[in-house]
Design a protein around this nucleic acid. Structure first.
Lengths: 256, 256
DNA sequence: TGCATGATGTGACCCAAGTCACCGTCACAG
DNA sequence: CTGTGACGGTGACTTGGGTCACATCATGCA
C-alpha cells in the first residue's frame, strides 16, 4: 500500500528515462527530508548522502540484519516498516521497537561502532536505503544539525526503551497490552462520539512478541479487557470507550 | 571510601586557601577529564563547564531526581555511584542502569528536551556536579568531539538497555542472575587458579531490583546456582569456577 | 472444489515465581 | 547488654502465565 506510493514516485521521476530501475537522487532527497535524522540538512548535503545510498527491498518477514552481525551503516526506511527484536534460544521473539516509514533504523552501531544490537526484519514489503556509517559520522562532524538530530533521536529511543523495561518488569500482561492499545489510540486513533477507534493490523502472535508473552495469553488478555469494558473489539477493529480509563488501568497497582 | 579520595584532592588543592569549602575548578577539570563525555574537550572548554557546574552531595539512598520531573541538565558523578530506576505502583523497583564514578548521568533529557526518564538515587555517599543543559548543547554544537562522545555514550546505553529488555523478557531468573554475575566477573573479577573471584557489594534486595524479581527468589536462585556448581559463595564473596560455563547457562534455552 | 496454511479460540495442565509468615544473625545505638 | 532494624534463609501457599492439544474459520491457491 505504501509500496504503491513509492511506485507512483518512481514512475513520476523515471518514465522518460532509459534505465527505469534507477531511483533518482531527487526522489531520495525527498524521502531523506522526511526523516527526523536528516531533515535539517541542506539539499547539497542530502544530495551527497543520496548519491552514496544503496536501495534494498524486502518482503514481509525478510531479515534485514541479524543481531551481533558486523554493522556497516544504517538504513532509511522509505516505505513499509521494520521491527527490531531479539530472539531467545527457543525461538520466542521480543520486539524492541518498530519503525514505520519514513525514518531511520540501526543508528546505534553507527555511533558506538559495534555490531547490530538486534535483529531486524520487514513487517511488510519494505524499501530501504543503506548509508555507510563513515559517511554519516563525517557528515555529523561537519554539520552539527545532524549530530543534534541524532542525539535527540537516540535520547528518545533510550527513553522508550526504559519504558519498555519498566512495563516488562513491573506490569502484568493485561496492563502491558492496555499500554500498547493506549499508545496506538493516541497515535493513530480516530475519535468518534463512541470513543477512540483504532485498527490494529497485528496478529495475536505479533502482539505477543511486543508485550513479551505468547499468543494464547494475548487472546485471553483481550477477552478480559473486553469483559471489563475497557475495550470493544471485533477482528482487527478496536473501540476504546474511554482513553482515561484504560490509561489508569495500565498504570494501576492491582489490575481488577 | 571514594569519598575519602575526594577529601584528599580537596585538601591538596585548598589547604592554603581561606575559603576551604570551595572545590577548585582545576580539580573539577581533572574529574571531567575522566568522563567519557568530556574527555576529548580542551582544558579551556572544560574550564567553562567547570565554572558553571554546581556541586551536589548525596547520602546513601538519597534521591537525585524523580522520573518525569522537569530536567534542567545532567550530572557528573565525581565520586560514589547512582542507580537509575523505575518504581511500580506497589513500590517494587526495577533498576535501569547503575553508574559509578567517574561518569555522567541524565544525558537523555539534555538532548531530547524532556523530563527525567527515570528516578535516580545514590547507592552510597556520592558527589556530583550539575551542568545546565543549554550549556551542554551549546558546547556540543561548537565542539563536535562532545557531540560524538555523547552519541557514542547514548548508543552504548541503548545497546545495554536492549539487552536488559531481552533478558527480562526472554530469560528466567536464574539466567538473569547468572548474567549479572558474569558481567561483574568480566568487569571487576580477579582471576585466580580456582576461577574468577568477585565481591558483590549488593544486598539480595538490590540484586532483585536489578534482575526484575524479589528478594526471596534471589536467595533461592543463588542456592540453585551453587548446587549446580556454577558459583561458590559465602557472604558477599563469589567464586566463579568457570566463566564459560556460567555464560553458557545464562544463554541457554533450558536451564537445567 | 478441495486442500493447505495461518489466525484465532478454548480447555486442561503445570510450573516458575511472587506472596506471606516467621526465624536467626549481625551490627550498632542507647 | 539489650533493643531495634537490616539482612538473609526457608517453608507453605497461590497464581499468572506458559505449554499442549484441538477445534474452528477464514483465505488463497492449485
Amino acid at each position: 500500500m505504501t509500496q504503491v506510493t513509492v511506485t507512483e514516485h518512481f514512475l513520476k521521476f523515471s518514465f522518460n528515462k532509459a534505465k527505469i530501475h534507477i531511483i533518482m537522487p531527487d526522489d531520495k532527497i525527498a524521502i531523506f527530508k522526511q526523516t527526523e535524522l536528516f531533515r535539517d540538512l541542506d539539499d547539497a548535503v542530502l544530495d551527497v548522502l543520496a548519491k552514496h545510498s544503496v536501495v534494498k527491498r524486502l518482503q514481509r518477514d525478510e531479515i534485514l540484519f541479524l543481531a551481533s552481525e558486523p554493522a556497516k551503516g544504517l538504513f532509511v526506511i522509505a516505505s513499509g516498516s521494520v521491527r527490531a527484536f531479539r530472539t531467545s534460544a527457543d525461538g520466542r521473539e521480543q520486539v524492541i521497537h518498530v519503525e514505520r516509514a519514513v525514518t531511520t533504523i540501526a543508528e546505534v552501531p553507527v555511533f558506538d561502532d559495534g555490531n547490530y544490537p538486534s535483529t531486524a526484519a520487514a513487517e511488510e514489503p519494505t524499501t530501504l536505503y543503506f548509508l555507510n556509517k563513515q559517511l554519516i559520522l563525517k557528515t555529523a562532524v561537519e554539520h552539527p544539525q545532524l549530530a543534534l538530530a541524532a542525539l535527540k533521536l537516540l535520547a528518545s529511543r533510550l527513553r522508550r526503551c526504559a519504558e519498555l523495561v519498566e512495563t516488562l518488569s513491573l506490569r502484568e500482561v493485561g496492563q502491558r497490552l492496555a499500554s500498547l492499545l493506549l499508545e496506538e489510540a493516541r497515535n493513530n486513533g480516530t475519535k468518534t462520539e463512541r470513543g477512540t477507534e483504532i485498527e490494529l493490523r497485528l496478529t495475536h502472535n505479533q502482539l505477543a512478541a511486543r508485550i513479551g508473552t505468547v499468543r494464547e495469553v494475548v487472546t485471553r488478555a483481550l477477552i478480559r479487557l473486553q469483559e471489563q469494558g475497557l475495550i470493544v473489539h471485533e477482528g482487527k477493529e478496536f473501540l476504546i470507550p474511554d482513553i482515561k480509563v484504560i490509561a489508569a488501568y495500565a498504570e494501576a497497582e492491582n489490575s481488577e
